[in-house]
């Protein structure tokens, strides 16, 4: 099949960017979206042009590295799917496709479609952990965790840290990402001791990074490749209120 691609090109963080059009032929419907871009890059390389920079690593939907907005939707049209697992059979021959990077102030562009997401690491550093040094853990079965609690914590922990929630949010808010981490650890008895401190510090770090504010529109939930529910945001709101008002 054949496609008309409009791709964001930006030579560097400070340089101005623009959409560039590419006509690409010879695409197989079995290709993944990223393999389609590989094909385009091979073609550009053969023509002596510079290939398009885009991030990907595991290409099986778990590392969270790939980050493309396709026709206005982070990770593209398939629900619960990262762009590396999106296949070309979901597109029509001759279709026009717009490909853009994640757009948010905390995600500055490195080049073309590659963004810098270290802001998320900094939010994690602010409190996304249980403070337990190696070697100091009690026997794993000495702390019981109910099956339902474990399942719920897992649901939050499934976050791959891709940042699609931020890219999708009308306000570029990082709430779903932070809420997922706060909830994952806050739900488990192991993380309970630091629950108040964690939520306060992570929210503070999130605010400092310049993410937008949540206005409960739930675009994040709709695009999250791991389908993490916004109920975790409510949970974080509750924790934060408790932490701000009552904890020392």
């Amino acid at each position: 099949m054949k496609l008309i691609l409009h791709i964001w090109r930006q030579p560097g963080p400070k340089a101005p960017g623009r959409m560039e059009r590419f006509d690409l032929d010879g695409i197989s419907e079995h290709m993944s979206f990223l393999e389609m871009l590989d094909l385009l890059n091979e073609k550009l390389t053969a023509e002596g042009k510079e290939p398009i920079a885009f991030d990907s690593d595991c290409r099986e939907g778990i590392c969270g590295m790939c980050s493309l907005v396709i026709n206005g939707v982070p990770h593209g049209p398939e629900k619960g799917t990262t762009v590396c697992q999106l296949h070309m059979r979901h597109f029509r021959d001759g279709q026009e496709i717009w490909i853009e990077p994640w757009r948010a102030k905390p995600f500055p562009i490195v080049k073309d479609l590659v963004v810098d997401r270290s802001s998320m690491d900094r939010v994690m550093a602010a409190g996304g952990y249980v403070s337990v040094n190696a070697g100091s853990a009690p026997d794993a079965n000495s702390v019981l965790v109910g099956k339902d609690t474990a399942e719920q914590a897992f649901e939050a922990a499934a976050c791959i840290g891709c940042g699609a929630c931020v890219a999708a949010c009308k306000n570029a808010s990082g709430m779903l990402f932070v809420a997922a981490k706060v909830s994952h650890l806050g739900l488990l008895p192991q993380g309970r001791e630091e629950r108040m401190r964690r939520v306060r510090r992570m929210v503070e770090a999130m605010d400092q990074e310049g993410f937008g504010n949540c206005t409960n529109q739930y675009e994040c939930e709709a695009t999250c490749p791991k389908e993490i529910p916004v109920a975790f945001i409510a949970r974080m709101n509750r924790d934060f209120l408790k932490a701000a008002l009552f904890s020392s």
């Binding site: 409009h6 206005g72 939707v73 757009r103 948010a104 570029a172 504010n213």
Partner: peptide
């Protein structure tokens, strides 16, 4: 919120809002 997205999408779309 506006400052949090200094460059807006060329092709924006809404899924759920």
């Amino acid at each position: 919120n506006m400052a949090a997205r200094p460059v807006s999408y060329v092709k924006g779309r809404t899924l759920k809002a």
